[in-house]
Write a protein that binds this DNA or RNA. Structure first.
Lengths: 219, 219, 219, 219
DNA sequence: CATGAATGAGTTTTCATTCAT
DNA sequence: AATGAATGAAAACTCATTCAT
């Protein structure tokens, strides 16, 4: 009987936990959509709860504040991205470097595609008034630039990358990525093939825009 | 007497107009500084008027709203930039193309340097709450991308630029520029030499990051 | 079988009742401590249940509201006090009147000492928002003043107390007691000897502050 | 003409200032009445503005917060009281000491009478949740007790006051005063003659309650 | 009996904009 | 033209209480 009681209790708890999880996810998804449509700042908690169909208190039952929900979304995207970035392996019997890079870029583009709304929110949240949010975004971008920068420096050492100012160029790479993604993934008007986007990002970042016969001019 | 009155009136009007012009410019400059320091959203009309030393009503005498002052600043920067962009001239007895491009980039960087505060405001206003502001920013960027795109297409036709998706790559170029400027012009911590910045933007945009012996791999 | 069932049921009921009683007391004691630390208003039901380790609903199973728990605490202290107040017995072969009074005051001070937390809560709840609570406190104090007043009137009749306005002076006595207790029993900083406090209350109440040779001046 | 303009300007400013002053006073009086009726905590800013007939923003134009209006009221009463307390002068050709004390007590009672509502608010605000308010009240009472304490010690040195624990007894005196005032000035039911109240406070504080022939028992 | 998720009325405060003087 | 007092919609957040499980 004890066992039965425990089982029942567990069953109830499990069901309740599942409901909680679903509700939390529902509120989060609602917030995500609204943030994407109107921006983080223009979306009020009132908007979120009326759209999600929950009471005011319920929102604060699941999230500490409006900022915290954004921060959590940010962490989610960051996690997705980190999972999809793989360093280049230069050992002999590995795939060509270009293919490895292409694969990483492809996966990142894919991730942004799969998380269009999330990406939109984060790309558009640049000028949030909340200091915590701003700081989190700064760190997010800073981390990415730092990562790219380290990769460039390694590339330079092993002769894959030409001599360049890694700090500046890593900013450029991130910026190009952000803008291309913002325009060509998120803009509802232009449905671009991810493969094309990948290729364009890769080639622009790798070899720039100049025709081959002019390359000598840029030293 | 009518003439005299008119003359006197004209003199008075002229003086009054000059005063108006100065006052307007003073409020605008004050707003610019505050937007630069605290961001558009965090700057209140109260901040502007108390710093500028004018009455609340006076602000609305010169500007329709807080947004309108921002919109005007945006137009100002756009004008400055347009004045400094010069198309490449490919005729025989002109300076080498690379030098021409370098000169244009140099002048844009210079303009952003000279209008640091203005640039900061606009780069950081990405996610403004106001739809009008957002739309204006979108159009601003759209215009620039369109301009770059046209230039790229011309370049492709005359064989200066390799085959590429001009719409996408122009996004990339603008994005790289924005991010590099944001990090390395506006960040008060890193005082980068404009010449270095110019060179890095130019070389990254033109020839990417790859070492020469690998260029063949990116077709 | 009916008897047996009833018997079993009784045993179960008794055990359950005991558990209920304990749980109720536990919640009450927890609330008391929190009220004492942070004040009635600053203590939330959430504080109480999380400290007591019971569920939210359980709280309302045992108490009607946050106010009701306070009201009950109030009644408790009142009961303690009533149990310790003993009227003065003026019959010939009884202890001297002063000693009798001293004994009562001593017991009251003792009771407040022993119920420091409870006393603190009630003394500090003076301006509670809840009308019911306010009314209860008013009645509590009114009862005490009435009791003192009756005692004074008796004293006047038997010649132990000088002619005075018993309603007013009883207010004064209660007020002096409250303030002295608040400052010198409850303030964690000043650990005053109960005996000293008793003596000071007694002498101040009985003979005021004036030096003997001046007493004639106060008629 | 300059003079005239200035005059007009002054006239306008003066009139505007007067209106401001009146409006401020109106809001303050409204708040005072509401605080007196329902207590500080139970009175919301919404109550104040709807009763005063001003807009929400207007309240915050004149007062920083709900607390600040209370703090200002507190300072007001404190100022009134301080103005009416006069030290005893023991030099030969001055009025009898008892008369001097009576005069001070009379003036304090009078002040409380004249500021019934204000007194009520402050006496009932004991348990405010706001830490700033609580601290201000604590300091208010602390200052008064300290003042009484110093007066008692002086009295002991010059032989006017018997040996006693000045810290404790000053608490008692303040407490007696508070309670008597609370019951017999503020209670709308009991309209007590201020002169009677003065006399009772004075005699209770000075000579206590005991009949003369028993005084010897309290040493 | 016990639980704890859900509720929503209520709180204080901000700030862009208007308009009588 | 200039002023600045007044406005009120809107925001984020709290918490005592209820009720389905």
């Amino acid at each position: 009987m004890v066992a039965k009681t425990l089982q029942a209790s567990d069953g109830r708890t499990a069901r309740a936990n599942e409901k909680r999880r679903l509700r939390r996810a529902h509120i989060m998804r609602t917030a995500l959509n609204l943030f994407g449509d109107k921006g983080f700042h223009r979306t009020s908690v009132s908007d979120i709860i009326s759209t999600a169909g929950v009471a005011r208190g319920t929102f604060y039952l699941y999230f500490e504040s409006k900022e915290s929900i954004f921060l959590e979304l940010l962490g989610e995207l960051f996690g997705h991205l980190r999972d999809n970035v793989v360093g280049v392996d230069t050992r002999p019997n590995k795939p060509p470097i270009v293919d490895q890079l292409r694969e990483t870029v492809r996966r990142i583009v894919r991730t942004l595609y799969d998380n269009r709304e999330l990406t939109k929110v984060i790309l558009r949240a640049g000028a949030s008034s909340d200091p915590q949010v701003r700081e989190a975004l700064q760190r997010f971008e800073g981390d990415i630039e730092h990562y790219i920068s380290k990769a460039l420096e390694l590339g330079i050492r092993v002769g894959l990358v030409r001599e360049l100012d890694s700090a500046m160029v890593s900013s450029g790479i991130l910026g190009a990525f952000k803008q291309m993604a913002g325009r060509h993934i998120l803009d509802p008007g232009s449905a671009v093939d991810p493969a094309v986007l990948t290729e364009q990002i890769l080639s622009y970042t790798a070899r720039g825009v100049v025709a081959d016969h002019l390359l000598g001019a840029f030293t």
